[in-house]
């Protein structure tokens, strides 16, 4: 089933810094909830493994992620597909836009995703909530990453 989600988050850093961190595998790995590994295979491609739980379905997703439409420091498109084995699959992407605001950066994201298999069958009513929470957690972590501990 398809889902869409939009949101924005104000970050205390310049667009250049935000954009750099959005391309930094270490930062992404630390910020993606449940991310176990994240390996860059090229500057715009990486492989990730993340554990996700939606309602009664918990699965370890292995996926390939691509970065496209790179337009530093204005934003990019991040898309990918994850295979959760018998739990099903998830695929989709997010357009991320960065604009200067209040001395920092306003990050806007626009997600379109599709899930299938057991995830859709059992978890579909919970998917929007779970996705929102995952996004919230990511950006909370990401905001924290703007100010690395001294």
């Amino acid at each position: 089933m398809a889902m869409t989600m939009t949101g924005e988050v104000q970050l205390p850093a310049s667009r250049e810094v935000v954009f750099a961190k959005l391309n930094d595998p270490e930062v992404l790995k630390a910020c993606i909830p449940g991310c176990e590994t994240l390996v860059m295979s090229s500057p715009t491609e990486f492989q990730a493994v993340a554990v996700t739980k939606i309602g009664p379905v918990k699965a370890r997703f292995k996926g390939n992620v691509h970065l496209t439409d790179l337009d530093p420091p204005n934003g990019y498109k991040i898309s990918g597909e994850g295979d959760g084995g018998v739990a099903g699959f998830a695929k989709g992407g997010a357009t991320v836009t960065l604009v200067e605001k209040d001395g920092g950066t306003l990050l806007t994201y626009n997600v379109e995703a599709q899930i299938g298999g057991k995830l859709a069958q059992l978890g579909q009513r919970l998917v929007n909530g779970a996705a929102k929470k995952t996004a919230d957690d990511f950006f909370k972590n990401f905001a924290a990453a703007m100010n690395p501990p001294a």
Binding site: M1, A120, Q121, R125
Partner: peptide, 14 residues
């Protein structure tokens, strides 16, 4: 079913 063919009423919960 959704347009992609996923059964969204796939359990006694739904």
């Amino acid at each position: 079913y959704d347009a992609a063919g996923q059964l969204v009423t796939g359990s006694m919960m739904d």
